[in-house]
């Protein structure tokens, strides 16, 4: 697999710092599962975290070490990490959210053959969804109120900017209004995280949108 579109340094650093909403963390974890290039960059930002932690120190409470030594007394050591499953389409972090493989996704129609499944993330500021766009069909024309990350999991789409295939990530912000179209052939499945709400221009008159909170 050749991935052409990658995560930015800003996003990788914020992910290393655990400073992003859950929905973005999920897309980043899914991309890193597919992309060695970004995984290596991500590990470099972890190393920067290591350097930051080395940089400042303070006093521990009296008896702190003794308390910790008492605590590890007889504490069993973990032998191996519990293996996590992935399927041909969904990387492991996504399987945890879907509660199983692709067959467990609860799709809902959003119009024009496009289906979506909102994933249960905890933050109010951003949301994550799986999108299913039939081959040859267009995503409803939309803009965003903030950052949007779209990761292709199956098939490919094109928009005004470029072509995106499995593993590719599109980073769009409020200034981008685009109409991704799935390539003919295989249906396209994407994971998208959006800050604020998505504005589907074709579905509702612009004026009504704030009231419907799509």
């Amino acid at each position: 697999m050749t991935i052409k579109h990658h995560l930015s340094d800003e996003l990788l650093m914020a992910y290393a710092a655990a400073d992003l909403p859950e929905a973005f963390n999920l897309v980043i974890a899914a991309h890193l599962s597919l992309c060695d290039e970004c995984r290596a960059r991500s590990m470099a930002f972890d190393a920067l975290g290591g350097a930051v932690i080395e940089d400042s120190t303070c006093e521990m409470d009296e008896g702190s070490l003794a308390a910790c030594l008492a605590r590890i007394d007889g504490l069993a050591q973990v032998e191996t990490a519990a293996p996590r499953r992935a399927d041909a389409v969904l990387p492991a972090p996504l399987l945890d959210y879907v509660g199983g493989g692709l067959d467990r996704v609860k799709w809902r129609a959003v119009g024009m053959g496009v289906r979506q499944a909102i994933l249960p993330t905890g933050d109010k500021g951003a949301s994550a969804r799986l999108l299913y766009i039939p081959g040859g069909a267009a995503m409803p024309d939309h803009g965003h109120r903030g950052l949007e990350l779209t990761l292709v999991l199956q098939g490919a789409f094109r928009d005004e900017a470029d072509r995106f295939g499995r593993g590719d990530i599109e980073i769009a912000d409020a200034s981008v209004e685009h109409t991704p179209v799935a390539e003919a052939g295989m249906d396209c499945i994407c994971l998208a995280a959006t800050q604020g709400s998505l504005k589907f221009n074709a579905l509702l008159p612009r004026l009504a949108q704030p009231f419907f909170r799509i």
Partner: peptide, 8 residues
């Protein structure tokens, strides 16, 4: 915020 880890 929860922070899912990439696949092992």
């Amino acid at each position: 915020s929860r922070r899912p880890e990439p696949e092992d």
